[in-house]
């Protein structure tokens, strides 16, 4: 049983690509972001930050879809993601298209 539904507009969707930013010295090494990243982007590193904790490190940067869960789960405001610059144009275009569609529908 490994079937997955295929969205009908899969050809139109471009999976967003995110970029992770970490302020290492703010991190207290709780591991929430690593544990709950749905795309397995992060791992704990071996290095120590200024407070003596192990901050996370980006393991699979290409997997990040900019969902922002790490940013919301981080209790120390130390990690966040942004949309990669080349995706921003696409997402803008897409939202413009969506708006157009929405207008037509209404």
């Amino acid at each position: 049983m490994n079937y997955k539904r295929i969205p009908y507009d899969i050809d139109k969707i471009k999976i967003p690509q995110g970029e992770i930013h970490i302020i290492k010295n703010r991190c207290k090494g709780c591991g929430f972001c690593v544990e709950y990243c749905p795309r397995d982007v992060l791992e704990m590193s071996d290095e120590f930050n200024a407070m003596g904790y192990h901050p996370p490190r980006v393991k699979n940067p290409e997997n990040c879809v900019n969902c922002g869960l790490c940013e919301m789960l981080c209790p120390d405001f130390a990690i966040w993601s942004t949309l990669k610059p080349d995706c921003r144009q696409a997402s803008k275009k897409k939202s413009a298209e969506d708006e157009k569609e929405a207008k037509i529908e209404s």
Partner: peptide, 20 residues
Amino acid sequence: IPHIWCPGCGIGTTVTAFIV
């Protein structure tokens, strides 16, 4: 910042939810 909450505390997480 950094705040006084311990590593693994959930208060910071609640604050992010509030800010969002």
